[in-house]
Design a protein around this nucleic acid. Structure first.
Lengths: 127, 127
DNA sequence: TATATACTTCAATCATTATTGAAGTATTAT
DNA sequence: ATAATACTTCAATAATGATTGAAGTATATA
């Protein structure tokens, strides 16, 4: 699918981010990271899922640029995750731009018998 | 997964909506509906996909409450789709609430050797 | 050096979802 | 009534993604 979109939002990137977040456990992990939870063990404990699965989901979130990683400087075995604020801001902008209700255009259908004109919800005067 | 979330956003509903929209063709269909395109044939023409597939995706969008349907009053064979503004507003609210950068809490890790304290990105003073 | 810890990666399986083609429905035109 | 139109539903397949268990990596402790 080539970019035949006259719209500023990068649809490919938006779809990708939505897909990554549209998974219950991943969204829960993201939520916990927002709440300030940081390491695999704590996340797994909190959500009652195996560490390797947490690891997998964090990898997906990292690959999407949504999450950062850091190793502890005293004991590098411990790994801390956090929200990537830059990507979060980009995502918020892309989302609100794309799903802005003001974008909805009250265009008339170009096909059909045109009997529709006065009945489409968009054209109707809203109370 | 029970609702052990102290957060106002309905995570189940948000995940569901994200999942429905996290599909390239569905997001494109949604985009076209925002642009004022209305019927199956026009959508299929525009995106170069078979009408039954358009139909399928529109069914998914309808089941999620994101899209409305109407039949033409002169020739009921023609079907017109449009954005459900109510659901769109709910979605916008849920999304912006959940992904609000101000939600990020600079909590310290409760596990690990605590050598991390001064190095986590959240704690660091941002320039 | 041997063992433990904390996590990651890999390969395989299971589940879900998208896609396709064919049949079906409802409506209108002839 | 018959045929055509516009779209929908269904059943089957293909593709994708989540989950699991085992092996692997890196680091730290005894």
């Amino acid at each position: 699918m080539t970019s035949n979109f006259p719209y500023p939002t990068n649809l490919q990137s938006l779809t990708m981010h939505l897909k990554v977040l549209a998974e219950p456990k991943r969204l829960q992990i993201f939520h916990l990271l927002m709440e300030g939870v940081h390491c695999n063990c704590e996340l797994g404990e909190s959500l009652q899922i195996a560490p390797n699965l947490i690891s997998h989901h964090l990898r997906v979130l990292r690959d999407a640029g949504l999450v950062n990683v850091e190793n502890d400087i005293i004991d590098a075995r411990w790994v801390y995750y956090s929200i990537n604020k830059g990507t979060l801001n980009e995502l918020n902008k892309a989302f609100t731009d794309f799903f802005d209700p003001n974008r909805i255009k009250p265009r008339l259908p170009t096909c059909g018998p045109q009997g529709n004109i006065i009945h489409l919800e968009e054209i109707a005067v809203k109370t």
